[in-house]
Amino acid sequence: MTDIARLRADRIAALPFERVEPTAGIAQGTSHALRQLWRYRELQGLLVRRELKARYKDSSLGFIWSFIRPVMLLLIYYFAIGYFLQAQRSIPVFGIFVFAGLVLWGLYSDILVAGTMSILTNAGLIKKVSLPREIFPLASAGSAFVNFLIQCAVLIAAVLVFGQMTFTWDVLYVFPAVLLVMVYGTAFAILLSALNVYLRDIQYLVEVVMLMLFWTSPIVYSYRMVADVIGGTWLEAVYLANPITVAILSFQRAVWLPSPSVQSQLTEMGIDPSTMHPADLDVRILVLLIVGLLLLWVSHRTFLRLQGNFAQEI
């Protein structure tokens, strides 16, 4: 026996035995899972970069595409729909309004669609190495977030060009808006990614349901129009229970509503600007955030329970 071998044997003899089971997370709890995630943070970063790269792989313009798409969308909504279809008449600076909603919605839909697929798209890794598997839906959320930041750069530029922004503290509503979307998006992505391993239809279902959900949030129409029709009824309560709706309302309040041209045009139309969102927005944000964090915890527990058989099912 060589010295180096003896040293190794001594070192190993001093280590405790660890039970190997991919489902260990259940018994050991959330804090253990979080420590594991922290240990793999570098890998997490690599996976996010990989997803971003894979998105525009082999294209010669590469990352520039992620700017071109939102700019085109913005121009279409600003001119074609805002002016030619006259949406501008009921919603001032319609281009910014709709683009703000679309960008935030895009974040949510990106997280959900990519997150749901994430376990299957990373089958190669999952079948070969033992890892905390939550990192795959989390990496999808991370790369969706980076993409969102890029689009936000376009949004900020547009606000400066079209909206003549003035500073108000309402701009802080950006944070709860993004947080709500991240929390709910991640919670659903973790849950659906695990279910999708056992029932492959989930990924198609998600795409269809997202198409429908798009219209249940005030993205291309305003909350005011909804309140005019169902204001004060239980339907409105249901409508506002949607966390993404509340997130979009606070996002609009941060980036669209404070603009002086929006304010003056609304007043001209005889609309009180503060009725563009529900009066108790702050409370709703808080309640939905707490519910969202609980949901995140529950879906993580479910994920841990289901992940033991991932490698053999994909």
Partner: peptide, 17 residues
Amino acid sequence: VIGGIIAPDAGVVERRG
């Protein structure tokens, strides 16, 4: 199973290093 990639239905696997 030894590598911790799939979970056994019964029994114990322990490992260190």
